[in-house]
Amino acid sequence: MVVLDYGSGNLRSAERALQRVGADVEVTADVQAALDADGLVVPGVGAFAACMAGLKGVRGDRTIGTRLAGGRPVLGICVGMQILFGRGIEHGVETGGCGEWPGTVERLEADVVPHMGWNTVKAPDDSVLFAGLPADARFYFVHSYGVRTWELEPSEILAPPLVTWATHGSDFVAAVENGPLSATQFHPEKSGDVGATLLENWLKSLG
């Protein structure tokens, strides 16, 4: 298991959380290690543009694309989820993302921003990530931006992604499960036992 080090993210928190559920974890920016790992975790905190710059600096965007093309699992966390979408808009500045999903990361519509603290989510019944967790489970969020509209059109060929939603002022995407690509807007590594269960579910899904 590799936690990708591209200069952004709570790397040690993610490392410890994964170790807690039994993963053998390496924190590295090494491309080959990231390509070869059973699973790749892409954390992220701060500004969308800064995270994309850091990611490109270690060829992380290409590494993610290569892994997914080969059906190799990737998990994005917080801004590590946001950069998987088509673009981010912060303070009027638009930055291109990895484009794995269409969609725009934009400021949350809420009276209080940032959204900071514990919140419930609305997960699909057949979710793998949230399997075994109660409907009232609370996860830890810290963010001012999110994806408020799911833009990927249904396909007659591919199974539709499983999209989990949360509400802060208005609805936003809290998690996505899409074949080998999974992501959470919240921080499972800061979400106590429920976060540990989610990470354990993801690890089990790696096969």
Rank of each mutant, 00 (worst) to 15 (best):
G60P: 06
G57E: 01
L206E: 02
I157H: 15
V112Q: 14
C98F: 06
I89K: 01
G54F: 02
A47F: 08
E153F: 05
Q185T: 10
T66C: 13
G9V: 02
H143Y: 09
P102N: 00
R16D: 10
G96F: 06
V45E: 03
M116A: 12
G86S: 02
W150A: 01
W150V: 02
G71C: 05
P114I: 01
D126I: 07
A53H: 14
V112S: 05
A34P: 11
P124V: 06
L4N: 09
F141R: 01
A37I: 13
K190T: 08
V3F: 02
N10F: 13
R87E: 07
A33H: 14
G207E: 15
V25H: 03
Y140Q: 10
T63L: 14
V142T: 01
L133V: 10
Y6M: 00
V147C: 06
F172S: 02
S144A: 15
Q185W: 05
D5C: 03
M52H: 12
V3M: 03
K122H: 14
D126H: 12
N178R: 08
A196Q: 10
L198T: 03
T167R: 14
G86Q: 06
G71E: 01
G103S: 13
L84V: 07
T164V: 01
P188M: 10
L55T: 00
